[in-house]
Computed example of a mutant assay.
Amino acid sequence: MKKVLLAILLLVVTSVAYISCTKEQSEEQQSITGRDVIPLADYGFYHNEALALYYKNQNGVNQKTTNIIIDEMTADLTAKYPEKFKNVDVSDIKEAFKDIDPRNFDIALFWNSKKEELYRSNKLSRKLGSFVDAILKKDMEYDQYVVEIENFKKSNSLNLEEQNKLVVFESVLKSSNEYWSSTHNSTNKSNSKPGSKVIVADTLGALIFAYSGPGAIIAGGISSLFVNEALPPYEVAPLEPENPEILTPTIE
């Protein structure tokens, strides 16, 4: 009889521990995904939609405050995807970008000014922050970023929150590379080279605000938009003619 009671007691304790662990993991994931209206792996798709809709519907960023631009991008997404963005909260994004000049935005300076606050508020781990610091020091192409991410995951033990944020990071990185490298993208001022400043800005903007759920999509879009607008128009050097004429210098 005692053995039966002991077995029942162990079963109850195990069940409670399992439920507690499952609830903790669920709450941890919920802190990023919110109501799970948008899977984390789809953030990149909606990031590209945010940029495409903004350039289609809005008249650039000149003479606009960051709040107006954020509201315009949010309104565009909400109009097309009402169920996914109707409850998105952009208050933190507005606060973070309030003193930013949209035509003079540097993602590295922005990151360095925000990271300690993110650490203190537990919105981003120092482990992920060290990864960001490392990649900002390198001038890499898209494929190299992918390798860096895989190496980071293999060499670090990541909790569920960190894993989820890397899903956001990878999703936006991939989609951003596709968007800005497209030959059909007439709004691109970058050199379309994978790993350009615009692509890095997209990805880091989304990662910094990954704690806010779908707000990260707008933050990534805003970061990308600002960096692209801050760049001078990219000009392709004219091709040399196949048989250039030999010019004889004039001797005075």
Rank of each mutant, 00 (worst) to 15 (best):
M1H: 11
K3E: 14
K3I: 10
V4L: 07
A7V: 06
V16R: 13
C21W: 15
S26R: 15
T33D: 02
G34E: 01
G34W: 07
R35E: 06
R35W: 14
R35I: 06
D42A: 13
G44P: 00
F45W: 06
Y46W: 03
H47D: 13
N48T: 07
L51T: 05
A52L: 15
Y55Q: 09
Y55F: 11
K56F: 04
N57W: 05
N59A: 14
V61M: 10
N62R: 07
T65H: 10
M73S: 13
T74S: 04
T78H: 03
T78A: 07
A79V: 08
Y81I: 00
P82K: 02
E83H: 02
F85C: 00
N87M: 08
E95N: 04
A96V: 08
K98Y: 06
R103E: 15
F105D: 02
W111K: 12
K115Y: 07
E116G: 10
N122M: 05
L124A: 11
G129N: 06
F131W: 09
D133A: 11
I135C: 01
E141K: 12
D143K: 01
Q144F: 02
V146H: 02
V146F: 01
V147E: 00
E150D: 11
N151L: 08
F152Y: 11
N159W: 09
Q163C: 03
V167H: 00
V167C: 01
V168M: 04
E170C: 01
S171L: 07
S171I: 03
L173F: 06
K174G: 00
S176K: 03
Y179F: 11
W180T: 12
S182K: 15
S182N: 13
T183M: 09
T187L: 07
S192A: 02
K193D: 06
K197I: 11
V200P: 01
V200F: 02
A201E: 09
L207V: 15
A210G: 11
A210D: 07
Y211L: 11
G213R: 03
P214L: 00
A216K: 08
I217M: 07
I218A: 05
A219M: 01
S223C: 15
L225S: 10
N228R: 15
E235R: 10
A237F: 11
L239S: 09
L239I: 10
P241I: 07
I246D: 05
P249A: 12
I251A: 03
I251Y: 12
